Simulated scan of single mutants.
Amino acid sequence: MKTGFLTQWQTSYSIKEGYKWLQGESRNVPWSKWVWNRYNIPKHSVIAWMATLGKLITKAHLFGIGVVTEKMCLMCGLQEESIEHCFFQRKYSLQCYVKICRRLKLSATPMDHINSSWKKWSRKYACKRKKSTCLVVLAALVYQIWCARNCAYWEKRIPRPEVLVDNVMHSVCNRVRQLINSKWSQGEKDWLEELARIQ
């Protein structure tokens, strides 16, 4: 039994306070707003969370623990496969990123790390719903790039960047359409439909 249980509530007890006590101290992290955005598709959130924490299993990681004998990138073969390389330095990822930025009407400034890129993306829109949608696109992009990497590893093929970007936009628009309610303005609905149509 956790210490403090018997002495904590000698006079009164509430479930809310008991639950907070059980959880213990937790620290707030700035990236939680985009990783655990309610608009996100859950599997996209999990991969974005692992990427943010640096916990995705790349070849560099596997090489470090002695599982593989080579740590070069599966998709380009030019550099060591790290999380930074997978999402920000590889030519394939940069092509996908530029195409997504074009669709969102964002300036395609180079991303240096996943923990800073979401801040740049969320500054574009003042509207909360548009900002949340933009962050969903980032989580979907991270997920799809990771899927393309896994496809290169397991199936020995790489989807074209255009196909990956279409998959991102299709999944995001379908997800966000499910969340539209009466609070959405007509302008926000039109923006989402325009986003779905842009090629």
Rank of each mutant, 00 (worst) to 15 (best):
Q79R: 01
E80Y: 03
E81H: 08
E81R: 05
S82C: 09
I83Y: 06
I83Q: 12
E84G: 13
E84T: 09
H85F: 03
C86D: 10
F87I: 04
F88K: 01
F88A: 05
F88D: 02
Q89L: 02
R90P: 03
K91P: 00
K91V: 03
Y92L: 02
Y92R: 02
Y92C: 03
S93H: 01
S93E: 00
L94P: 06
L94Y: 07
L94T: 11
Q95R: 05
Q95G: 01
Y97M: 05
Y97S: 13
V98R: 14
I100G: 13
I100K: 10
C101R: 08
R103Y: 04
R103G: 13
R103V: 02
R103C: 09
K105M: 09
A108Y: 11
A108M: 12
T109A: 15
T109G: 15
M111R: 10
H113C: 14
H113A: 12
N115R: 14
S116C: 04
W118L: 04
K119V: 06
K120M: 07
W121D: 06
W121L: 13
S122M: 08
S122H: 05
R123P: 00
K124I: 07
Y125K: 07
Y125V: 00
Y125R: 02
Y125T: 03
A126Q: 15
C127P: 01
C127I: 06
R129V: 03
K130W: 04
K130Q: 10
K131D: 04
K131F: 01
T133P: 04
T133M: 12
T133D: 08
C134T: 15
C134D: 08
C134G: 14
L135K: 12
L135G: 14
V136N: 07
V136Q: 09
V136A: 15
V137D: 12
A139N: 15
A139W: 01
A140W: 03
L141R: 07
L141W: 15
V142F: 14
Y143G: 12
Q144G: 09
Q144D: 14
Q144R: 07
Q144L: 05
Q144E: 15
W146A: 09
W146K: 07
W146P: 14
C147F: 11
N150V: 00
N150E: 06
C151S: 11
A152W: 03
Y153N: 07
Y153G: 08
Y153T: 00
Y153I: 01
E155R: 05
R157V: 01
I158Y: 00
I158L: 11
P159R: 00
R160S: 06
R160Q: 04
R160H: 13
R160N: 07
P161K: 05
E162V: 10
E162T: 09
E162W: 10
V163Y: 04
V165L: 10
V165T: 15
D166A: 14
D166W: 11
N167W: 11
N167C: 13
M169P: 14
M169A: 10
M169D: 14
H170R: 13
S171A: 15
S171L: 10
C173T: 14
C173L: 01
R175C: 11
R175L: 06
V176Q: 07
V176K: 04
R177V: 00
R177Y: 03
Q178P: 00
L179T: 03
L179W: 03
L179R: 09
